[in-house]
Structures are given as C-alpha cells and as structure tokens.
Amino acid sequence: MSASTDTHHAGDAAAEPRPRVQSAARAVGILMAIAKSEAGLTTREISEQVGIGRQATYHLLHTLTATGMVTRAGGGSRYVLGLRVGTLAEAFSRQLAPSEHLAPLVRALARDTGETSYASGWWSGEVMMLSIARGNNPVQAAEVSQGHAGDAHARASGKLLLATATPAVRDAYLDAHTLTRLTPSTITTRRALERELETIRQQGYAIDDEEFAPGLSCIAMAMDEGYSPFVLVVTAPRERFLAKREEYLAALRRVVAAGAAARDGE
C-alpha cells in the first residue's frame, strides 16, 4: 500500500507533516464513483472519473473485489457495489445521529448569515429536516420543526436532494408522492420539476422562492458534492433573501468547504 506525506513551509513551526495513505483515499474515491453511478462503471470509466491511472485502478479494484466491497456485473464488464457495502449502510443507519454531526455546521451557517439555517437529508426514503439553528436577525423566517418530512418538490433542500439522487431513487420518490400545491409558486407537474432539477444540477445549488410558504425563500447546497445524503440550507424572509442571496450563497460555500476540510483532517 503506497503512502504520501503532506509537507508544510519550513517557517511554519506549528505545522507537522501528516502521513496519508493514498491508496485508501483512492479506494474510497472508487467506491463513491460506483455508488453514484446508475448501473456500475467499467475500469476505464472509474479511471477517468477518479483521476488515477488504469493500472492503479485495476489493482485497487482487485483488492475491493477480494474484500467483497465491489463485484462484477454486466457480464463482468462493469463494477457495482458488493454485498459487504450493505453492512456499512446498515451500520450507518444504526449508529449515526445526524443532528449531532450536522449541528456544528448548521450553527456556523446561522452565525455567518444571521438567518435560520438547517440541514436536511434522506432518511428512510423521505427528505427530513435533521438539524436547525436560529440566526440573530430580529426578524426570522418561520421555522419548520426538526424531523419534518415531505414536500420535497417545494423545498430547496428537497429539490437539491432529488436533483443529486440517482434516477431510480428520484423516480421512486416522485412516484410515491403527490406534487401538492402549497403556494401559487409551487411546482406541481413532473415535467416542470424535472426541468428545475436539471437547472439545479447545472448550477450546484437549489432555491425555493415562496414555493413552500408565502414570504419565505431558501437556498440549499449539497455537502460532499452531492455524494453524501445531506444538504445545508439558509432560509430568510423573501425581501431580505433577494437582497442578500449572493451573501448566503458565499456563506454556504464557506461552511461546506469547512465541513469537507474537517472531514479530511486538513
């Protein structure tokens, strides 16, 4: 297993080299790429998406296959997640307390923006609010309670999670839920929603402009570039939202980046 070491400027006395196992990071990258695919990936596709050479990809896939984390499908030409990944998924649901892990990021977002902020994610097939923090502006947007689920088509967080989901997950959700009109601005047709989701995928964030509640606007950004099932959201009265939208977007980018840096130990 190869390893690399991060180095710092000699003048930085407080910094110390930190060892990193490059092969482990690449293996995780392969698993994430396969997880985001609809029907698995070929060796060439994995190599291109993860950004590593074909030979290194082959060796890592051999190890992942031997450990049951991936397996061959499609006549052996494609790699899909193996059965042992199910153990990780089951443990994730059993062990994770989302509010505890997401709360620091939500609080940081509320401090940066002064607005009510929250995190939402996929939970048991629903888009659920998992953590919330109030801002310090004297006039705040009306809160939705922690644990609220449903109406993904009308919420910035829900639209973003639908946009970044696999087609199978997205279709399953939409087939099981009515696109209920909550305000005059709510999207209520599948075709219009699909167009909106494509726009969201292209711009990298989602907006709810009075689609969930009158006078309320929200902006959402995915964590981990959409690989994780969680998003962060800023919500504000519409008039203030229109004036500060770019500020909220910048704050979201900062907090998402800080979360990724903390996760990676940087």
Rank of each mutant, 00 (worst) to 15 (best):
H148D: 01
Q140H: 10
S157D: 09
G204A: 04
T164Q: 04
L179G: 01
I187P: 02
H177A: 06
A165R: 05
T189P: 02
Y205D: 03
A154F: 08
H177Q: 12
I187H: 05
L182H: 09
A152G: 12
E198W: 02
T164L: 08
L182W: 10
L160D: 01
T164A: 00
A168C: 09
G147I: 06
Y205R: 06
T178K: 11
R195H: 15
G147N: 06
L197W: 04
P138G: 11
Y205I: 00
A192T: 11
E196K: 14
E196G: 00
L179P: 03
G158H: 07
S145V: 07
L160I: 03
T188Y: 04
L179A: 03
S157E: 00
L160M: 04
V144C: 10
P138Q: 14
A172N: 11
G204P: 02
T199V: 04
L162K: 04
R201M: 00
P184L: 06
E194I: 10
R155E: 07
Q202S: 10
P167K: 09
Q202M: 04
L162N: 05
R155C: 04
E143Q: 13
T164K: 00
T183H: 10
D208C: 15
A165W: 09
S145L: 10
G150F: 10
R195M: 12
A156P: 03
D175V: 05
I200V: 14
H148Y: 14
A149G: 02
T178E: 14
P184W: 11
D171F: 09
R190D: 04
T180W: 00
E194H: 14
I207F: 10
P167D: 05
H153Y: 02
N137G: 12
I200R: 03
L161R: 02
A176N: 13
L160N: 02
A206N: 08
E198C: 02
N136V: 12
Y173H: 12
H177C: 02
R190M: 03
A168S: 15
H148K: 12
L160E: 00
P184N: 09
I207M: 12
E196W: 04
E198M: 06
L161S: 01
V169I: 14
T186A: 12
T164R: 05
T199G: 11
R201T: 02
A154Q: 06
L193G: 03
A206R: 07
T166Q: 13
T199P: 00
T164Y: 11
N137L: 15
L174G: 04
L162D: 01
L174E: 06
L174K: 07
P138F: 14
N136W: 15
A192N: 13
P138A: 12
A156D: 02
A152I: 11
H148I: 03
D171V: 13
R181N: 01
A168M: 11
R191I: 13
G147Q: 06
